[in-house]
Design a protein around this nucleic acid. Structure first.
Lengths: 187, 187
DNA sequence: GGCTCCATGTAATCCGTTACATGATTAC
DNA sequence: GTAATCATGTAACGGATTACATGGAGCC
């Protein structure tokens, strides 16, 4: 007999716990929920979800129940009391990890070897991307309002604001860049 | 004899090309440069840098030259014309990848199971972290100004602005959260 | 003498994505 | 009937971090 008292959970484990804390879901549904909500700041793939569900189940943090749809097998997972405790305990701990990888910024950073208008082109692309993302999230906002989930709404709106700020920053930097380029040409 | 005409380069390869495009550097110096500049939006470890330098050298995109310091062996890498062309070609391509992982946002997203003031605590931690980061980058700004690198400066300042926006957003969300919590308590 | 920094490298490991396999159900 | 979606899983692969090994140089 093995005693698992308090094994460290992976970050994916908490996404799963969070997702089933709202209401029971199948692995497939968890993946779908992640893809339309946390994906932009915390993704998860089938390759993580299914093995993790098995582990969480073994540790008694979720329980899987058969819930077939016709002849199609299906297992929905419910969070247990122990699972809810672990989730809350994690939520109360100060957030640690935060990282980003941004190819646009990297290109900008090295753009000293290019002509100013080539660098400006990078900024325009970045701007367009961010503007599109802001619109996408603004559309999602309507969907989230329906669910009346205060925190989900807060996060989507934050996403809209962030992408708008970013798009605006790109515009300003492009203008600045072209302005100094003009000034330099005239001397 | 092997003919490598146009093998795809890894993202790390471009960081290295970018870093040696400014002036020749050793692997150690590349790592140090990454750590004090691009790290926040594009990191690189020794485990990537040294093998990648070897590959880039084999492909004729950089050339390594012995540059010992006393008895201590040291190799500095210089970008070749071919390497510069590859770097520029990449810089001109529209940026694709951009991703983030943010534990704070993830915790916020699932904070519906907590008391409002516990969720507010998460926002306070996030705010403090962002404010500290903004200060850190503001201090770095002074160092970057010395180097008179227009693009590096643009990126650091962007970082300051971003973290200040983020910190401010956290403050506003905390206020909003506590306000609705008060309202709900009074009903 | 010991600590920190300079300097190069590799092996083990972790984390995560992609691709694939399989099969039922629903919509057109 | 066939394409898309629901549903579960795993194997292969790739990217990146961590840890370790090795050793010289400079400083207190």
């Amino acid at each position: 007999m093995r005693y698992i008292l308090f094994m460290d959970l992976s970050s994916t484990a908490y996404v799963i716990l969070g997702m089933v804390s709202v209401h029971p879901r199948s692995g497939y549904e968890i993946k779908a929920a992640v893809d339309e909500s946390t994906r932009r700041f915390w993704a998860a793939s089938y390759g993580q979800i299914y093995p993790e569900l098995k582990r969480l189940s073994e540790q008694g943090l979720v329980t899987g129940m058969d819930a077939p749809r016709g002849e199609r097998k299906r297992t929905v997972y419910t969070i247990t009391d122990a699972g809810m405790e672990r989730l809350k305990e994690w939520l109360r701990r100060p957030p640690e990890m935060s990282e980003m990888r941004d190819e646009g910024l990297l290109k900008l950073f090295f753009s000293g070897v290019l002509e100013p208008d080539e660098a400006a082109e990078t900024l325009r692309r970045m701007r367009d991307r961010r503007a599109a993302l802001a619109e996408e999230l603004a559309a999602l906002e309507a969907v989230v309002i329906e669910k009346s989930d205060e925190f989900a709404l807060m996060v989507v709106r934050g996403g809209v604001e962030y992408n708008r700020w970013y798009a605006d920053w790109c515009e300003r930097m492009e203008a600045e860049l072209l302005a100094t380029a003009r000034k330099e040409r005239s001397t």
